[in-house]
């Protein structure tokens, strides 16, 4: 427990690498409600797969299946090409699938380094003298965050004093440090301002360049397009398509996201009557 393998900084993997995580025709029912149906996509190491959709589109259901909170009712979920069923979030973590939720798993009053290692604290000494290796924890926190390009002032700063973007970044750095191979990010940019969102997108790119497979959930195509390699569009629990970046442009993505015709209708509705 005291020492966890660091993720090797793999140079950006070839885009055509075998998929690390793949879902085929996956579906989930809650009683008579079809929450998700027929969704397929894949993500390889060093790639970012963006899951786009409006509220209620099934994004949350999909990531909950990926992270082991829910189990799929139909379809297949494959890790390294092997079909699996994840019993719980712990099982997902054991396979290197780490999820960073919107409401971050952070304790605001605790220092950054204590949060970083919470639950997996490095120790030294034996028996009753087993104690935290504080110097090491501080040092690793500083180094890991610096490695992600996050410049913290002081690892003893309480997490509560960090900005939203910085907190997301610490959570991402933590997942990377504890050996995540797949990083699932649940709307990491949704509550952030433009500048902070940019910061988080940079860390997503950093994680990708370290060779992680990233699943990035968002409802903002402008955030998804610059970092994404694949785009899955969900609407009302169904997939509108699974596109490689070469197959789709930002305007098209935005149009699909907004529901095309619906948006045109809306803009028509909202337009002012020309002034007489």
């Amino acid at each position: 427990m005291s020492e966890t393998a660091q993720a090797d900084p793999v140079p950006a993997a070839a885009p055509e690498a075998a998929p690390l995580l793949e879902v085929r025709d996956i579906g989930k029912y809650f009683g008579s409600v079809i929450a998700l149906q027929g969704v397929s996509t894949q993500v390889a190491p060093g790639q970012v797969c963006c899951v786009l959709g409006d509220n209620g589109a099934g994004k949350s259901t999909l990531i909950k299946i990926l992270s082991g909170v829910h189990q799929q009712d139909t379809g297949e979920y494959l890790i390294d090409g092997e079909p699996i069923r994840l019993a719980n979030p712990r099982a997902a973590l054991d396979r290197g699938i780490a999820t960073v939720y919107q409401d971050l798993a952070m304790v605001p009053l605790m220092p950054i380094w204590r949060n970083f290692f919470l639950g997996s604290e490095p120790t030294k000494g034996r028996g009753p003298l087993r104690r935290l290796d504080v110097a090491k924890a501080r040092d690793i926190t500083r180094r890991e965050l610096a490695g992600m390009g996050i410049d913290i002032r002081d690892p003893d700063q309480p997490v509560g004093t960090l900005s939203g973007g910085e907190r997301q970044s610490v959570a991402i750095a933590r997942a990377v440090h504890f050996g995540a191979r797949v990083l699932i990010l649940d709307e990491p940019t949704s509550a952030l301002g433009v500048k902070q969102a940019g910061v988080v997108l940079r860390y997503i790119a950093q994680a990708r360049d370290r060779g992680l497979a990233v699943v990035f959930i968002t409802h903002n195509p402008h955030h998804a397009y610059p970092v994404g390699d694949r785009f899955v569009l969900l609407k009302r629990g169904r997939s509108l398509g699974d596109f490689a970046k070469s197959e789709v442009g930002l305007p098209e993505l935005t149009r699909l996201m907004a529901g095309g015709a619906e948006l045109e209708e809306l803009s028509h509705e909202l337009e002012r009557e020309p002034q007489a």
Binding site: V107, L109, S120
Partner: peptide, 21 residues
């Protein structure tokens, strides 16, 4: 200076977060 101490702060500060890690 112990793991248990870290856990005490975490269960009081944000028990959900503590559990999830």
């Amino acid at each position: 200076r112990t793991r248990f101490g870290n856990w005490i702060f975490s269960v009081g500060g944000n028990v959900q977060a503590a559990r999830s890690v």
